[in-house]
Design a binder for these strands. Sequence first.
RNA 1: GCCGCGAUGGCGGAAUUGGUAGACGCGCUGGACUUAAAAUCCAGUUCUAGCGAUAGAGUGAGGGUUCGAUUCCCUCUCGCGGCACCA
Length: 800
Amino acid sequence: MYDHLSLEKKWQKMWQDNHLYRVGEDANKPKYYVLDMFPYPSGLGLHVGHPKGYIATDILARLKIMQGFNVLHPMGFDAFGLPAENYAIQNKMHPKIATDLNVANYKRQLEILGFTYDWEREINTTDPKYYKWTQWAFLKMFEAGLVFESYEPINWCSSCKTGLANEDLEDGKCERCGTLIEQKPMRQWVIKITDYAERLLADIDKLSDWEESIKEMQRNWIGKSEGTEINFSVSGSDLNIKVFTTRVDTIFGCTYVVLAPENDLVEQLKPQIKNWSEVEKYIKAVKNKTTLERTDLNKDKSGCKLEGVQATNPFNGLAVDIFVADYVLNSYGTGAVMAVPAHDERDFEFAQKYNIIIKKSINPISPEEAPACYTDDGTLIDSGEFTGLDSASARSKMMDWLEKNNFGNRKINYKLQDWVFSRQRYWGEPIPIVHCEKCGAVALPYDQLPLTLPNVESYEPSGTGESPLATISDWVNTTCPKCGGPAKRETNTMPQWAGSSWYYLRYIDPNNDQALVDKEKEKYWSPIDFYVGGAEHATRHLIYARFWHKFLFDIGAVNYEEPFLKLKSVGLIMGEDGRKMSKRWGNVINPDEVVEKYGADALRLYEMFMSPFSDSSAWNTNGLIGVRKFLERVYNLAVSQDPDSKVVVNLLHKTIKKVADDILDFKFNTAVSALMILVNAIYDQGGKMNKNNYALFLQIIAPLAPHLSEELWSNVGQKDSIFRSSYPAFDPSLMKDEMVTIVVSINGKMRANLNLPAGVSEEEVVKVAMENEVVQKWLEGKEIVKKIFVPDKLINIVIK
RNA sequence: GCCGCGAUGGCGGAAUUGGUAGACGCGCUGGACUUAAAAUCCAGUUCUAGCGAUAGAGUGAGGGUUCGAUUCCCUCUCGCGGCACCA
């Protein structure tokens, strides 16, 4: 009887005891580094969807091991951050204790699925020996001038009581808790990730083995746009309003200029503004809006005219009115735009509401009727010396003109914003900076790392914008490393994404206390050959990690410029009701129970079989039972000394090839189905299989169902693990079909099948086809126009 | 609005470079075994007509290219994901 429970435990123990997955650098073997996005251990434990990606990489790792590769397949835990801390607060536990418990539970859950991890390389981002190097990298960035202190308004989540980066938002809400985000000015540490925008964008093209959708998401997120900065001089003042536009060709249609409410220029213009109280009132009202309210596209545009000032268009010397309006964002471009209502829909909407002149300066190229607001390229009209040019060449000539006359310049902008790197929370890496009254912000010397997170009585967020660390005065008060005078430690902590931005490097060399990673070891293992994780990380973790890695490359800490060669995203597993698995719907399937009842191999195989890997699909217990039945059929196969039928031998060799090809291609569903077809064929010949072929069969199913195949492998007298054997080679001569089915179609419609020897000639096929009754019936009284012959496939007879 | 992806039986899904549409699994129907049920095994299962051989229709809709289109091209509809007052 297939007793999955005892069998699986037995082999898991054997694998651990024999260190089956312990790896080191081995110059004689090709290396293969396959990695999962490491989990964030929450208090709820794993549900059945979490291990899907881990199962896939485990199958790949086992196959690669059997194919002779030196395989690194590690696992660890990303345990700092808000969810862990919130869970701890809710359960009135210290975050450290809660995290340790959760990690232990996750590890147990992973172990019963029989994964190949080398636990000697386990890492945990909350371990001071680990985060020493997170802090080290931060200091290196500080040294390189990539880190700065800012007091700009940032995204503030009033529920999590912390500032957040742009990447942490979803729809103007906190990605974690769904609370509406407000803008709050606050002292914060910011990393100039925008310095890397161009490289992050350009190098996407080198990532040929990434899914196109993920690359496209990153391109959109980085959001490069090429345009022009133009100075509009302010009448009666020596101030200039600098605007950014991608459509300088429309500038003769500019009828007003808009400043973002937060733009510093507004304050500078105050002395000349006659309706200041009104303007001030408008700005205040805007500041009270949440991000969501401000970015709601459906709302009416609002603004306020600055009375008493005007801006001059350098192209025609005409003065236009100036407005403040919150449809212009201070965080993008120059925080000011030239408004061309005739050729921009937002400006058009605003101009209509405030009765501003709409002046056309572009005509459509084709003689179509131009809409009131025409936003495409066209031919310039009423545009001085540029009249008659097409938009593209006008842009180029107008940019030249601006640069020649010092009115402006070409400019590239990115939507990507600098990385807000400080959190006003307890459970994160302390930022290794000291504030000295005399010297300002001073980096902690490297020999003082790690700066460990102190224990606190109360780790709950204060909500005042200060981290709970601020209350520990003997930790906060220190001396300045530069002048030795009194100083205070930085009390903000790093965001959750810090530790996960480089963890994959640490697996290579997890215990090194001299360097983040040994460069020789890194050269051997990097880059990661196959990386698997959720698509939700496309514009978060995967941007941060690429950035962090490029920085490490620039300071010479690593050998390669991109960390992840190939990337595949894992599709969600929904509940049986088709909804996302959640406590709220009561549709969560726990892997522990599945393993208990049906076995880890059944779970593994089912999750691979249920749908294409990157698609999401709903859990179906009947499907799982089907796979379990298949495993029982495998278990019950009999071994014999008799030779197998030609059909089985042929199919076996085809399957050896197909399963390996499909696994490497992450097409697990068809790999499993190929194995089912093979097993069905074995049952068709009586359910027994020749001993030698049986061994080959076990080897090809081993990566997918490791416990079962290990058991059956030892049942036929094998002493060593099946994973120390080599994946079988297929024999092309045995794969070849002797007979082929040739389709006879008439006018493209299938009418008959002919079973003929492979390689049969066209003449022979035609001859046999003409003798066929059905074919004769269809050809009766018709004229044959032509015949198309595809060797070993079909003959198509075209008739009239 | 922009970008990307997708649409195939009752369901999940298969189908090299265009060449038998529906592999494999689930579900369902019938049968064997059983006092009975479960389990297992066997047969069937795209739709329509027919006892049947067979015929017709059929891969979101419409058109096109081709001897032949799920596959290539055009137009459209719907769904999913991402971005979004980004000037």
